[in-house]
Design a binder for these strands. Structure first.
Length: 594
RNA sequence: GGAGGCGUAGUGUAGUGGUUAACACACCGGUCUGUCACACCGGAAAUCGCGGGUUCGAUCCCCGUCGCCUCCGCCA
């Protein structure tokens, strides 16, 4: 290789001793009679200054160098004169005077510039991901990710956990997301599935008596993607035996706090606040409330009782609710915006969106002066009660949704986040909390049956067991989600460790005994051989690191991510395969995309 | 499955029913001894994503298609 590195570029210090740096040509500045070359490695950049009079051979070579060539420089470090110090550079007080240089590899002009001056299109970046990753900010993200996982391993190791790998070739199970399938050559017509999570394996490890398991586990879900969703992603997967929900939450809370501190210096509140699912839905209209937004939904049905306005009266008579959200500054919204909000509220299931703009007639202290198409349907005392209940003031807008409680909640929950964006209402950061007491089951109208909110192995609350057969919607789950700034970053539960309870749950899900036996027989069987009470949690590693890195997309914290169409522009995956490969797998492709 | 946005030199953008398709950075050549976003002079570089239609004429208008981004549905 010739010259061998003795020091990282970013750590070159004034010394008068000889060093050798190796890396990429970050920039050249040729002044004719003086040449500057910035050499970059993973640690940073250092300036090399070449004087043709002092070192003509070196100058002859170095003046040929172009951006992104890989080179090495051996020479003396010297301090720059005070006037030439660059305070923006860690090594800005020194420079290298080369005695010998070497070129390891030349580079064609790059397909895009790495300086970040222009936002390059995602496809181009991904097609040349190995160049994109030369950007210091992306490398910093990957290092932060490493620090996070290193802290997780250290923390869990110290707590007696064992890191265990589980299979990625496993079986498809009903419920949950669409599986990625892998054809089984040895078994024509059969398929492996890539795991959506190691859920069943970690339960089996508990039955096996490992007691404390974790894994930095890759998971796959073949669903449509988003900025915060990739087809393959990573969970910090944890499971413990002989524990209750409190034990798991305490462990996870300490772990996340420590890892956030170690990776990014972020301090989470201690202890994290708790909120039940029901409270979160009523107050924030979401099961993952963003506590940075200082707005809450309020119940106003009682203030409107006896109203003549059918848009409120009918839902109330039908057992529904009327709820309101105050939006500070919302009186400035245009009719066009209000119409668009109404349309979106309808799109989300609301019958309509009632709005009241307060104090818009110019009255100095008269917030009851409201502008609204339906104000005339409300008695003056009702309008006053509405303003009083919501804490409305001149300049605010009040939005009301009437209907079934879940619809009113989710529509206003959406509106709350919209208002936070529109009026920049978010305050603070890292507002984490636990959301608990989720319902175990929810009605799936399409399937015509109940489905598991979390997954079908989540334990019902013991007090609610009797409701399972008759009123399944009222059964609470021993489940908990970790939410940070409106993003779900982890979720877990106490699992069912009783074979009979597990069977009852499958029955509540309308899984036939035959299907249960076929697909989950192994689990039921395992549960019959002395299963410990157990539970765990899975933390979304990518999302946590994304937030810690301040990134907007998971792609910025994954080395080789996929596009929104689940493709990889670098390798061309997914790709067609040879006919022979299909034959071996007993498959026929019925569609060919060119 | 649905909605919206984008696609023009290597990159990022501008632009127009008839133009020599513009600008910046990058690239190439030259000048320059203190730059670090070096500066200055010059140059090369475009199938205006692809296919079809309208038109005397389409990069521009219309339809389709592909790709990328964002959102809804979906994601136990």
């Amino acid at each position: 290789m010739g010259l061998r590195r003795t020091v990282w570029c970013g750590e070159v210090q004034a010394s008068g001793v000889e060093v050798t740096v190796a890396g990429w040509v970050d920039a050249t500045r040729d002044h004719g009679g003086l040449l500057f070359v910035d050499v970059r490695d993973r640690s940073g950049v250092v300036q090399v200054v070449v004087d043709p009079g002092a070192a003509p051979e070196v100058w002859e070579q170095a003046r040929q160098w172009r951006g992104e060539w890989t080179v090495a420089v051996r020479g003396l470090v010297r301090e720059r004169s005070a006037a030439n110090v660059n305070p923006k550079l860690a090594t800005g007080a020194v420079e290298i005077v080369p005695a010998e240089v070497a070129v390891y590899g030349r580079a064609r002009p790059l397909p895009f510039q790495l300086d970040g001056a222009a936002a390059v299109e995602e496809t181009t970046r991904l097609r040349y991901r190995y160049l994109d990753l030369r950007r210091p900010d992306l490398q910093a993200n990957l290092r932060m990710r490493h620090r996070f996982t290193a802290a997780v391993r250290a923390h869990l190791d110290a707590a007696g956990f064992v890191e265990i790998e589980t299979p990625t070739l496993t079986r498809s199970t009903p419920e949950g997301a669409r599986d990625y399938l892998v054809p089984a050559r040895m078994a024509p017509g059969r398929f492996f599935a890539l795991p959506q999570s190691p859920q069943l394996y970690k339960q089996l490890l508990m039955i096996a008596g490992l007691e404390r398991y974790y894994q930095i586990a890759r998971c796959w879900r073949d669903e449509d993607l988003r900025a915060d969703r990739q087809p393959e992603f990573t969970q910090v997967d944890i499971e413990l035996s002989f524990v209750e929900a409190e034990d798991v939450m305490a462990l996870a809370e300490g772990l996340v706090r420590e890892a956030c501190r170690a990776a990014a210096g972020v301090e989470l509140q201690a202890p994290l606040p708790r909120m039940t699912y029901g409270e979160a839905m009523v107050r924030f209209g979401s099961d993952r409330p963003d506590l940075r937004v200082p707005l809450e939904i309020v119940e106003v049905g009682a203030d409107l009782s006896g109203t003549a306005f059918q848009g409120f009266a009918q839902p109330l008579a039908a057992g529904g609710v009327v709820r309101a959200l105050r939006v500070p500054g919302g009186a400035a919204l245009t009719r066009r915006e209000l119409d668009a909000l109404t349309a979106e509220a309808r799109n989300r299931g609301a019958a309509g969106l009632a709005w009241f703009l307060l104090g818009t007639e110019g009255e100095p202290a008269g917030p009851v002066a409201m502008r609204s198409p339906i104000a005339k349907f409300l008695a003056p005392e009702q309008r006053a009660a509405l303003v009083e209940r919501t804490g409305g003031a001149a300049g605010d807008a009040l939005f009301l949704v009437a209907g079934p409680a879940p619809v009113a909640a989710t529509v206003l929950g959406w509106l709350r986040l919209w208002a936070a964006d529109r009026f920049e209402l978010r305050r603070g950061a890292w507002r984490a909390l636990w959301v608990t007491d989720f319902p175990l089951l929810e009605w799936d109208a399409d399937a015509g049956r109940f489905v598991a909110v979390h997954h079908p192995f989540t334990a019902p609350h013991p007090d609610d067991l009797a409701l399972l057969a008759g009123e399944p919607a009222r059964v609470r789950a021993l489940a908990y989600d970790l939410v940070v700034d409106g993003t779900e970053v982890g979720g877990g539960s106490i699992r069912i460790h009783d074979r009979e309870v597990q069977s009852r749950l499958f029955a509540a899900l309308r899984l036939s005994p035959e299907e249960t036996a076929d697909k989950f027989g192994f689990l039921l069987e395992a549960l019959s051989y002395g299963a410990p009470p157990h539970g765990g949690i899975a933390l979304g590693l990518d999302r946590l690191v994304m937030m810690l890195a301040g990134a907007d997309s998971l792609r910025d914290v994954i080395a080789f991510p996929k596009t929104a169409q689940a493709g990889d522009p670098l390798t061309g995956a997914p790709a067609a395969v040879a006919e022979r490969q299909l034959r071996e797998l007993h498959l026929r492709a019925d569609a060919v995309r060119t």
